[in-house]
């Protein structure tokens, strides 16, 4: 039994056929072959799958594809303004060595962008650490991720993103 869904992903209209149980992350990875969004768990805890749905960060393993009908979805592939320019958060992750194996990174970056905006570009270390509750990283020990997010907040403000 398949259902048609349509949505906008990274500014492009897309549609496809899914099962009722198909998760948004499966739709992105399998139907659209957009494999930047990762799956690290089966209990909605790791945050490797975070994308933005209508501007808010969402664990795409926790949402059915059909629930995103008509929504504007942004994934890690759509974050950078152009092929040779990174988003300030991506830049900050690179500058601060906030990634090692890179598996948690797409979800981390997408969560972090949303976090900075929700806090109106003003964050302190304790807030960043608390806000990262839903994103697991096994490699970095979080030290450099926290540093990167704190560095990105003013950079995002300055860049107006």
């Amino acid at each position: 039994m398949s259902i048609s869904v349509s949505m906008t992903v990274n500014g492009k209209a897309v549609s496809g056929k899914v099962e009722a149980r198909t998760l948004l992350v499966q739709f992105l990875r399998e139907n659209l072959s957009m494999t930047g969004t990762h799956v690290g768990c089966d209990t909605s805890q790791c945050g490797a799958c975070v994308v933005h749905v209508d501007g808010q960060s969402v664990k795409s393993c926790t949402m059915l594809a059909v629930q995103a009908e008509g929504a504007k979805v942004m994934t890690i592939e759509g974050l950078a303004p152009s092929a040779d320019k990174l988003h300030p958060m991506q830049e900050a992750f690179r500058d601060n060595h906030a990634l090692q194996c890179g598996f948690c990174t797409p979800g981390m970056v997408m969560s972090a962008v949303d976090m900075v905006k929700r806090h109106n570009y003003q964050l302190d270390e304790a807030t960043v650490r608390r806000e990262l509750e839903g994103n697991l990283c096994r490699c970095t020990g979080y030290h450099n991720i926290v540093k990167a997010i704190l560095a990105a907040a003013p950079a995002m403000k300055a860049a107006g993103v």
Partner: peptide, 19 residues
Amino acid sequence: VKRTEDQRFLTGRGRYVDD
């Protein structure tokens, strides 16, 4: 030195087995 591998990981272009 900033890592050369970061570009692909930061833009969702890492290639893991499941990809």
